[in-house]
């Protein structure tokens, strides 16, 4: 087994343990919440005691806690998410489309902003003290620190209500009734709805990447190896590329982390733009104590973060040859 394979196996094992821990925490925390999914129905008097017992038995909620936990573990690790209590349909059927909606909005936005703002960040870091640097830092910091729903509402007011360029709400026109993902997303109408939330999320994420890239390049700018590159006769842009390449690690880490967190959606943004994403769905499910739905959603989110970190670890080894894969310090 090569060093790298061993490193990979170790990281995989750690990831699996982490996933188990996360899954267990979800289970316990949900059970610690007061009330049950049927509380509201009981208080409204719509269910008799006998009906409640029947339903609880149907969902297995009458069994002892450890048995519930075991069957929960067994199913969730097989990606069997069960039935949503309130919606009475398979959890995956509820979550999958919402998740896809979120991802199709946020993944392109994140990639776009990671590439563009990192490049801009590197450029302004290289030309430190320029007007462009100050301007870009102030703008992106402003966008980053303003809550996303404020920026969102502002954009809606300006572009949707005043200029009437784009629709303010939803993913498709109310009249559209597409079947399947292809029909939903491959249409001009979707693009029309897409552009505003996309822009807002690009701007929202831009500040972090810009600052990370800028700081990285600023830090590397005076280093000896760049001086040698310069002495070799590399052009300004080639030197900048080397400086940028050397400050990739923090950007990469942050990108991977963000990518994992995207699975949680941007709840506020989804609310403002009426985007049927996973974040909104999760809030509803928690309010209504829809155990299976919340468990499944949180499981997916945790898994995404863990996988993203794993990917980042592996990419590290590729992007920085000095990163020791054996876990110890460099010899």
């Amino acid at each position: 087994m090569s060093e790298f394979q061993r490193f990979l196996a170790k990281r995989l094992a750690i990831s699996i343990v982490l996933t188990l821990v996360a899954v267990s925490v979800i289970f316990v925390v949900l059970r610690l919440l007061p009330g049950s999914p049927f509380e509201s129905l009981v208080t409204a008097g719509n269910l008799s005691q006998q009906q409640i017992t029947e339903i609880r038995a149907m969902y297995g909620l009458d069994q002892p806690m450890w048995r519930q936990y075991l069957s929960y573990l067994q199913s969730i690790l097989l990606f069997q998410f069960g039935y949503s209590i309130l919606r009475s349909q398979p959890v995956w059927g509820v979550l999958a489309p919402r998740l896809v909606n979120t991802l199709i909005l946020l993944v392109p936005a994140l990639v776009t902003t990671a590439v563009l703002s990192s490049l801009l960040g590197m450029y302004v870091g290289w030309n430190r003290g320029s007007k462009l640097e100050k301007l870009s830092i102030i703008t992106t910091t402003f966008l980053r620190s303003t809550p996303v729903f404020i920026t969102g509402i502002l954009f809606v007011i300006v572009f949707a209500y005043n200029l009437e360029l784009v629709p303010a709400f939803g993913m498709r026109s109310i009249s559209a009734s597409p079947e399947g993902y292809v029909e939903t997303f491959a249409s001009l109408d979707f693009l029309h709805h897409y552009i505003l939330p996309f822009t807002v999320s690009v701007l929202y994420y831009s500040g972090d990447f810009l600052l990370l890239a800028r700081n990285g390049v600023v830090e590397k700018r005076g280093s000896e190896f760049l001086k040698l590159h310069r002495a070799k006769g590399l052009s300004e842009m080639q030197q900048l590329a080397r400086a940028g390449r050397n400050s990739m690690l923090p950007i990469l880490t942050y990108f991977a982390l963000r990518l994992g967190m995207i699975f949680q959606g941007l709840i506020l943004l989804e609310v403002v733009f009426g985007w049927p994403g996973i974040g909104r769905e999760l809030v509803l499910a928690i309010q209504q104590q829809d155990y299976p739905l919340v468990q499944a959603a949180v499981f997916i989110m945790a898994l995404a973060v863990i996988v993203a970190n794993l990917v980042a670890d592996v990419l590290y080894a590729y992007f920085d040859p000095t990163v020791s894969t054996s876990g110890g310090g460099a010899a």
């Binding site: 280093s223 000896e224 190896f225 001086k227 040698l228 590159h229 080397r242 390449r245 050397n246 990739m248 992007f319 920085d320 040859p321 000095t322």
Partner: peptide, 8 residues
């Protein structure tokens, strides 16, 4: 420090 650490 004068060699680029991420380039062979």
């Amino acid at each position: 420090d004068s060699l680029d650490p991420v380039m062979s």
